[in-house]
């Protein structure tokens, strides 16, 4: 845990979220909040509704009930564009990079909302358009340096190994300079070394840039190490919420993970 950062006010408040697909209840009456600058983990067994929760936060799914309050504003109907505009960025469980594009271009796409140039200027690649492109390139190169992926910047991402792709995806999310970053299993399928690298990047982002992080992760060691507060879901319901230590000793959580003798 880094000492320098100050956990602030509630930045994201989810109230009584319920989400159904037809007759299937994915999320039932879930409420929790996220404070500024903290690392907030969502854990739970497979199918608990963790990814659905992230999808609700950034507007991919619309919950049937509930309210999302982001920075004091109510978003009953959060949509992906509004979420991106408000500064919510994310990565995906199954890598969702643009496979035909280079690493550089992938990360550049993350800056699209900050670009003002229009397509006619782009077509001429002249004056403001060129200056803007290069200014953003500079910003992107900082991220590339930060993530230590300089050597692959012109490689199409489809050719990269899994671990590096995960890193590029983090880079694309960072390029938007988000105020809140949703990470969906950023360390899944990685070896120990890659996990350590990724942990370091996540903590650095949180520490140096002050970005609030909401994280889904299966590796309990990682979760307990890096998160400030943990919310536990099971079958679409919240069964626990609190500090890692509190959650670890919660009987419901132990039952959910280990099963209960009937």
């Amino acid at each position: 845990m880094s000492e320098g950062r100050q956990i602030g006010e509630v930045i994201l408040d989810l109230k009584n979220i319920s989400l159904r697909f037809g007759g299937v209840k994915a999320l039932t009456d879930i409420s929790f909040d996220v404070r500024e600058h903290e690392v907030r983990a969502i854990i739970g067994p497979n199918g608990a509704g963790k990814s659905s929760m992230l999808n609700v936060i950034n507007g991919v799914y619309r919950p049937q009930e509930g309210d999302i309050i982001f920075r004091g504003e109510h978003h009953r109907d959060m949509n992906t564009y509004a979420a991106a505009k408000a500064g919510i960025a994310r990565t995906f469980q199954n890598i969702a990079l643009f496979k035909g594009m280079t690493v550089l271009d992938n990360i550049m796409t993350g800056r699209n909302l900050k670009m003002k140039s229009n397509f006619l200027l782009d077509a001429l690649y002249w004056g403001p358009a060129q200056r803007e492109e290069i200014a953003h390139r500079r910003k992107v190169e900082e991220i590339i340096d930060f993530l230590e992926i300089q050597h692959i910047r012109k490689t199409p991402v489809g050719r990269l190994p899994y671990g590096l792709q995960k890193r590029v995806e983090l880079g694309r999310a960072l390029a938007a300079e988000p105020s809140i970053l949703l990470l969906d299993e950023p360390m899944a399928g990685m070896n120990v070394e890659e996990k350590q690298d990724m942990c370091r990047f996540v903590l650095d982002v949180n520490d140096q840039l002050g970005t609030t992080i909401v994280l889904i992760e299966h590796d309990m060691g990682v979760v307990m190490d890096i998160s400030d507060r943990v919310v536990v879901l099971d079958y679409g319901r919240k069964i626990a919420d609190g500090t890692p230590d509190a959650v670890r000793s919660n009987q419901d959580v132990i039952d959910a993970y280990l099963g209960v003798a009937h």
Binding site: N58, V60, T80, Y81, A83, A84, K85, A89, R90, F92, A96, L97, F98, K99, G100, M101, D105, M108, T109, G110, N112, L113, M115, S117, F119, D122, A123, L124, Y125, A129, E133, R172, A173, A176
Partner: peptide
Amino acid sequence: LAKNMVRTNIGRSWMAIRDMDMAAEVIGFR
């Protein structure tokens, strides 16, 4: 002109939609 378009933001937006439309939406392409 086309070459310029495909190497700047507009071209990237097209390729993003092509390769993974859901992700493109999430990072703010409409």
